[in-house]
Simulated scan of single mutants.
Amino acid sequence: MMTSQINPDDYNRNDTDDADTVSATVPEDCAGSRFDKALAQMFPQYSRSRLQNWLKAGHILLDGQSADAKTKVWGGEQVSMAPQMLPEELAFVAEDIPLDILYEDDALLIIDKPAGLVVHPGSGNWEGTLLNGLLYHYPTLKTVPRAGIVHRLDKETSGLMVVAKTIQAQLNLVQQLQGRSVKREYIAVAQGLIKQDGTVDAPIGRHNKDRTRMAVTSMGKAAITHYFVLERYRAHSLVKCRLETGRTHQIRVHMAHIGHSLAADPIYGTRPHGSTPEIYEACQHLGRQALHARKLGLIHPETNKPMLWRSPVPVDIQALIDFLREDIAGEFEDDWDEDDYDVETIYQG
């Protein structure tokens, strides 16, 4: 369920104010809410703590006046906000990084991310990221939070991502993600023989001992993954996974949670039972988790038309699949690439 109904026409850069000022109208469904709570609902692309800091510093005005976080709003008030960049964001620089663009229009980009490319600068990866490449190829994205990035893929996960080219499109896409209307399907090689299709509905949060890892924990956020068995080999299964939510490492954590971690996963993987030395070597040669985001479907933020993009299985994962097939001398047909989304237009890479 979307958290608010904001008219895109009410969320615009103010032509008469500073170029970095964003104006918006408080939605009627925020009536009676604290101002800080309404801000979190209106601007989900920013963290609540960040909005509260801007509010305290006077960077957010309510009907042209400073306001307290506890101030009640009733809908219809005008909010003026001047987003402030964090110190690490000020260090973001444009870099000439090749991007595989499958689709582009005035509102969004669809990118086929290769394995090995970090999406967003962070500790240990302050350069050479997708964001740096976006700023180089699309300089206007410097005015959009996080250069238009609305969701991420792990460094070693390949596949499809959507990037917003405007703040209005970004807000719409964030709300679609929150409302679970964005369709994301992955292809993966999992360890072990999975008996049947299933769903993992288990909250995910930081591991209580190793903060670099994620884990299924009662203190985590809701996470739902649907998985479907496509092929079975000697000690592995080929599956497709569909996400309802988008938690960090979600598929990797959920598959490991049910005892079927992804092949070659350096964090959550284990050596599969029944594997031969040759299979183990083939998985290690992959050098990354066997996970690829192959389908992405959404409602276009401007035309409201459903759209779908597909990315072919990359060479390295396809080579592993072929090896696993040959190992059991099986004959398989790639009939698992059927289109089962209810859309009008399909773009295929």
Rank of each mutant, 00 (worst) to 15 (best):
M2K: 00
N7M: 08
Y11P: 01
T16P: 06
D17R: 04
D18I: 09
V26M: 12
A31S: 15
M42F: 04
M42I: 15
R48F: 10
R48I: 13
R50D: 14
L51V: 09
Q65V: 04
K70E: 13
V73K: 00
S80Y: 05
Q84L: 12
V93H: 05
E95L: 06
E95W: 02
Y103P: 15
L109T: 05
K113M: 09
V118N: 02
V118Y: 05
G122R: 08
S123F: 11
G124H: 09
N125C: 06
E127I: 03
G128Y: 10
L130G: 00
L135Y: 00
T140K: 05
T140R: 04
L141Y: 07
L141V: 13
G159R: 02
G159Q: 04
M161I: 11
V162D: 08
K165H: 03
T166C: 01
Q168A: 12
L173F: 01
L177Q: 00
R180D: 05
K183D: 14
Y186G: 00
I187S: 00
A188W: 12
A190L: 06
G198H: 10
D201Q: 05
M214Q: 10
A215W: 05
T217R: 04
A223F: 06
A223G: 06
T225A: 03
L230V: 15
S237T: 13
V239F: 14
V239W: 11
H249V: 10
Q250F: 09
I251M: 05
V253W: 04
A256R: 07
G269V: 15
T270D: 05
T276A: 02
C283P: 04
C283I: 11
H285S: 04
K295L: 14
K295H: 12
L296S: 04
P301S: 00
P301D: 03
N304I: 07
K305E: 15
M307D: 10
P312F: 09
V315S: 14
Q318F: 15
A319H: 06
D322F: 09
F323Q: 13
F323D: 11
D327K: 01
A329M: 01
E333T: 15
D334Q: 08
W336D: 13
T345A: 07
G349M: 14
